[in-house]
Every structure is written in structure tokens, then in C-alpha cells.
């Protein structure tokens, strides 16, 4: 069921696109993505019911710790216009 709205591959692809758009150094992007995914997966453990918004908030919370710019673009994806 989780796969229906959470795909780590899609998240990684989105974050890589945004990091390229932000011109972030390639070496710093991989650890940010790795730590973000680990944080989200840890948060997911033991939770039976979550919504898509909960999940997006968790990703956003993790990203905020490592890169304010990536966090801002993630929060504002699909909201530029």
C-alpha cells in the first residue's frame, strides 16, 4: 500500500533534479539524499496509518536539517504558480 504513494526512487530523482537546478556540489547531494531517506524510513517504522501529507512533512522535516535550499524547493514543488 505504501508503494502507491511513496517511491524512494521518485523522491531521489526529484531531489537530484532540484539539486542540479540549484547548482549544489555533486559531492554534497548524495549524503543529503541518503540521510533524508534514512530519516524518513526510520520515521515510518512502526506506523500503521499515515497520510500522504504526513509523509511529505516527514521528508520536508528531514531535508530542512541538511539543506535549506533543497527543503524550500521540495516544499514549493508544484506551487510556483
Amino acid at each position: 500500500m505504501l508503494d502507491q504513494f511513496f517511491s524512494p526512487e521518485a523522491l531521489v530523482s526529484d531531489l537530484k533534479t532540484s539539486s542540479r537546478a540549484l547548482n549544489l556540489p555533486e559531492g554534497s547531494v548524495e549524503p543529503i539524499i541518503k540521510h533524508t531517506l534514512e530519516g524518513v524510513l526510520t520515521w515510518l517504522e512502526g506506523r500503521d496509518i499515515i497520510t500522504k501529507s504526513d509523509l511529505e512533512r516527514a521528508v520536508s522535516r528531514e531535508l530542512e536539517k541538511y539543506s535549506p535550499d533543497l527543503h524550500l524547493l521540495y516544499e514549493n514543488r508544484n506551487k510556483f504558480i
Binding site: 533534479t17 542540479r20 537546478a21
Partner: peptide, 19 residues
């Protein structure tokens, strides 16, 4: 008015974000 500015940001995001 903000629509052309927002769309320009979308264009930058999509073009600069390509591999």
C-alpha cells in the same frame, strides 16, 4: 502580476535540473 515570473522559475528548474 506573478504568473510569468513563476513560469520562468519553472522553466529554469526544469532546464537546469536536467542531467
Amino acid at each position: 502580476l506573478q504568473l510569468p515570473l513563476g513560469t520562468l522559475l519553472l522553466l529554469y528548474h526544469s532546464v537546469l535540473g536536467r542531467p
